[in-house]
Design a protein around this nucleic acid. Structure first.
Lengths: 211, 211
DNA sequence: AGAATAGTGTCTCTCAGACATTATTTG
DNA sequence: CAAATAATGTCTGAGAGACACTATTCT
């Protein structure tokens, strides 16, 4: 029994007021994460990109290796090792998905194949964790966004309300975004649009347990 | 050309005043990380344990999956995917190593095969990082240790001097160690021995980038 | 007595977190 | 002018970081 090597990708996107994951139908009511077998001449990362888009690398896509699952019992009847990636794509960059994959809300997930539920919950933990010390949140937003939208993104991912004035003060002091010349009109007073400064320091020093 | 799957392990230990890594001789002056091919009925983790000790799982050993390297070009002439683990073992738990592996100081590494230097430097980054928000430092010390030894461990790994009073205050307030009834006599005044409290909260909340 | 290491307390300054009102636009 | 959303500043308390001397043991 040879060992089969493939990749899975947990792709997050933000729609309205919930996080969503891209899933492919499997059998019955069971869904699965996008998956691809790794070809002999292909890197793991490009296999991961190929798993959810034949359009391959949009350079926009945030992709990061998450974990490799390789328990002999994880899939009945075969020995498969899966390198799992997680990806973030902004709502406006969602193209036409191939096959019959669908976006599903994280809070209303259907039944999932094998250990895919575990993969998703680990990816979510990692996303939340990264949000606390890096600027990964911008990967889910369009190029220009208002401060309210940004705060909303954080609130959805973290699952808690944040204080508006503290949020604005800290993110502006951090210097990782800058105002654009544009404003967005909507229901009330128009909002200043900001963009991410890619040259900004992307990580903040974690608080040490010991000095 | 089939894809070969194996594991490598970056094993750290602390000797005297330097971090060391366990290496196996390869060819000429070239050394390599302990490696093992993954058997069809074996988990990745037990393969990793098997890579550096046929005595397999001492339950003591801290083992964590690090990253999976799978670039098609990383090893000339074959396609090998390596799942890399990193391990920490205390000085007093070093048994007799099999084969002709040797402990080498991190600051005086010999030439390394393939991408193994990259694996080690990534493992070190992760170790330093984890040290800042978790209690992983104890994995390199014997069961009982003095506060000076603990501080020394931190200083070696982080590569910087720490303030004695701040260190003691914070680690004691954190409640993750407790005094034992023993003291250690040495050159000057005997020191109180402490032990790690496994029931303690092992992680400290990271400082958020945003509130 | 001297050498060596263990052990201890205070102050300052920064920053996280709580909190309510005014400003601008549209219909 | 009413409804909707944007924008803004202050105070307090906790904790990080800097800093120097006393205590105990051994030879």
């Amino acid at each position: 029994m040879p060992i089969e090597l493939n990749v899975n990708v947990v792709i997050f996107s933000l729609c309205e007021d919930a996080l969503q994951v891209l899933l492919a139908p499997k059998a019955g009511q069971i869904w699965a994460l996008p998956e691809k077998s790794v070809a002999a001449d292909e890197s793991l990362e490009s296999a991961a990109l190929g798993a959810f888009s034949r359009l391959a690398h949009s350079p926009e896509i945030y992709l990061e290796q998450l974990y490799t699952y390789g328990d002999p019992e994880r899939i009945p009847g075969q020995r498969a090792v899966s390198v799992v990636y997680f990806a973030l794509i902004p709502l406006d960059a969602r193209g036409a998905q191939l096959e019959n994959m669908q976006w599903q809300r994280l809070d209303k997930l259907p039944g999932l194949a094998y250990d895919h539920a575990e993969m998703i919950s680990y990816a979510l933990r990692r996303l939340r964790y990264k949000l606390e010390y890096s600027a990964v949140g911008f990967e889910l937003l369009p190029d220009e966004f208002t401060l309210s939208e940004l705060q909303h993104t954080y609130e959805i991912i973290l699952g808690e309300k944040l204080d508006k004035r503290n949020f604005r003060r800290r993110i502006l002091e951090a210097g990782i975004i800058e105002a654009t010349p544009h404003r967005r009109s909507g229901d009330g007073r128009p909002a200043q649009l900001y963009r991410y400064r890619p040259d900004a320091v992307a990580e903040v020093k974690a608080r040490r347990l010991f000095p």
